[in-house]
Amino acid sequence: MNRILVTGAAGFIGSHLCEELLKDEGNEVIGLDAYLDYTTPVWVKERHLSSLLTHPRFKHVKDDLLTVNWEQLLPGIDIVYHLAGMPGVRASFGPDFALYAKHNIVATQRLLEACKDSLVKRVIFASTSSVYGERKGKVDEDDLVLPLSPYGVSKLTCEHLCRIYSEQEGIPIVILRFFTVYGPRQRPDMAFHRFIKHMVEGVPIPLYGDGTQSRDFTYVGDCVRAVAAAATAKHLIGETINIGGRERASINTCIALIEQLLGQKASIRWMGHPAGEPKSTWADVSKAEKLLGYAPVVDLKDGLAAQIRYVQELYKR
């Protein structure tokens, strides 16, 4: 039996990952989450985990990474997935960066300190495409990293901490860089969630930029299958791996797809130029294909349809 710890278990990707891991009867999952409500209300996070709380191989630990007693929690853990953190690009500018430093950098260093004295076989850190900054064309894992936002800086700092603790303390580290994950349970502050919610409510969509910016969109179901595979895949220790999607599209194209799926026209409220965000993202996923058997299958239209159903159901509570 593999005992797997997932930090940020009540979050968007974390809750999906717990469900994916539990499909393997050889896994026991401990989900750590403090239910912090900076970007997602507590009632939404509780809803994410509601179906897992009665699962015989799942245990929820409600605690903060900054205060949790790692000496009590880590013994017996085989795999650590570190997904918890402070998300959001635009919000990382200004005084709130102190929260990013605390919940991303300090919390990660504290976890790594605990892992050096444990017997964990693998620590998988969830990073982001934001570490790359502005790039033209596909980016692979060896490309220059030059973040455009304090959020990106905080995640890149965490990557450097992982590297240091791997080299100096021998912690078996794997880094995964996610590219614009979307789908059911996406955070309320993220674009697709906001677009769908505003259109369902009949109010204008808040749009940053002119809509021509493009993203490599990654459906959450595809994403977590790759993330789950990272627990046992061979030749992974020390690797940094992009997790991108099946297709790229502009924000304008995405809005047009949502209009088509909802059968209504969007009203746009222009919000100015987005601070800290690149014009485009595009992941080279050849390493993920080779090492994780990664093969995203959900196209953008089907993924958006699934997210629309989720958002509609969420706000009918």
Rank of each mutant, 00 (worst) to 15 (best):
Pro188Ser: 14
Ser92Gly: 08
Leu292Gln: 02
Gln168Lys: 14
Gly14Met: 00
Ala91Asn: 11
Ala101Ser: 11
Leu148Gln: 10
Ala84Asn: 00
Leu74Ile: 15
His193Trp: 10
Asp64Thr: 05
Gly293Arg: 07
His60Phe: 09
Asp143Gln: 09
Val89Trp: 03
Ala34Ser: 15
Ala283Ile: 07
Glu28Arg: 11
Tyr208Ile: 11
Phe125Val: 08
His160Ala: 13
Leu73Gly: 04
Leu49Val: 15
Ala191His: 08
Leu119Cys: 07
Arg317Ala: 15
Glu259Cys: 08
Gln260Thr: 13
Ser154Phe: 01
Leu300Trp: 00
Leu53Ser: 10
Val227Asp: 00
Asp64Ser: 14
Leu304Val: 05
Gly137Asn: 11
Leu112Asn: 02
Tyr151Arg: 01
Ser214Pro: 05
Pro172Gln: 08
Lys265Trp: 09
Arg47Phe: 15
Asp63Lys: 03
Leu304Phe: 14
Arg225Val: 09
Leu236Arg: 04
Ile30Gly: 03
Thr157Leu: 12
Ile175Ala: 02
Val68Ile: 15
Trp270Asn: 10
Val285Pro: 01
Val89Glu: 09
Gly14Phe: 00
Ser50His: 13
Asp96Ile: 09
Pro150Asn: 06
Cys158Ile: 10
Lys59Arg: 14
Lys136Gly: 13
Ser118Lys: 01
Ile308Thr: 03
Lys23Cys: 06
Ser280Leu: 02
Pro274Asp: 07
Val106Ser: 01
Thr108Glu: 01
Gly293Leu: 12
Val29Phe: 00
Val220Ala: 13
Ala283Arg: 00
Thr40Gln: 02
Glu169Asn: 07
Gly14Arg: 00
Ala107Gly: 02
Ser92Asn: 04
Thr7Phe: 06
Thr67Gly: 04
Leu112Ser: 07
Gly76Tyr: 04
Ala107Thr: 05
Phe179Ile: 09
Cys254Ile: 14
Ile164Gln: 09
Ala101Pro: 03
Glu46Pro: 02
Ile241Cys: 06
Met199Pro: 04
